[in-house]
Simulated assay, not measured.
Amino acid sequence: MADKKKIGATIKVKQIASPIRRNKVQQLYLKSLGLGKINRIRELQDTPAVRGLITRLQHMVSVVE
């Protein structure tokens, strides 16, 4: 059985690259994470959907904590 996360588990995501000259879909993924400018940090709930977006944007974002 998979490990269940805590109800209030969060993850901090930091944007490290610019969305300029990127695919439009990747720009939309950044917007859905609440990012858009370099060095912005967002605290999001740790869900499989957020984890999936982070893996698709692993060249543009990093997990701070």
Rank of each mutant, 00 (worst) to 15 (best):
T47S: 09
Q45L: 07
V50F: 01
P48S: 07
N23G: 03
G36T: 07
I7K: 15
Q27H: 05
M60A: 03
D3E: 15
Q26Y: 13
G52D: 09
E65P: 08
Y29L: 15
R22C: 06
I20S: 14
I11A: 03
M60I: 13
V13I: 15
A17C: 11
D3P: 09
K14I: 01
I7T: 15
G8R: 08
D46K: 14
E65N: 15
R21T: 02
K5Y: 10
K14D: 00
K5D: 06
L57K: 12
P19W: 00
R22G: 01
R22M: 09
V63F: 10
M60F: 05
A2D: 04
I16W: 04
H59G: 07
D3A: 13
Q58V: 06
R21H: 14
T10I: 01
R40D: 02
L28Q: 11
M1Q: 12
V63T: 06
Q58N: 13
S18T: 11
G8I: 02
N23I: 02
A2N: 08
K14R: 10
I7Q: 15
K14C: 05
G36V: 07
L35C: 10
I54R: 08
I20D: 12
P19C: 03
I20N: 15
A17D: 12
V61G: 01
I16D: 03
R40A: 13
I7H: 13
T10Y: 01
E65G: 14
L35M: 10
S32A: 13
E65S: 14
Q26I: 06
R56E: 08
K6E: 02
I38G: 04
S18F: 03
I7C: 06
Y29E: 06
R56G: 01
E43A: 07
R56I: 08
A2R: 12
A49Y: 04
L44C: 06
S18Y: 04
I7P: 09
D46T: 08
L53T: 05
K4Q: 14
D46N: 15
L57W: 05
A17L: 05
K31D: 06
Q45G: 08
V50N: 13
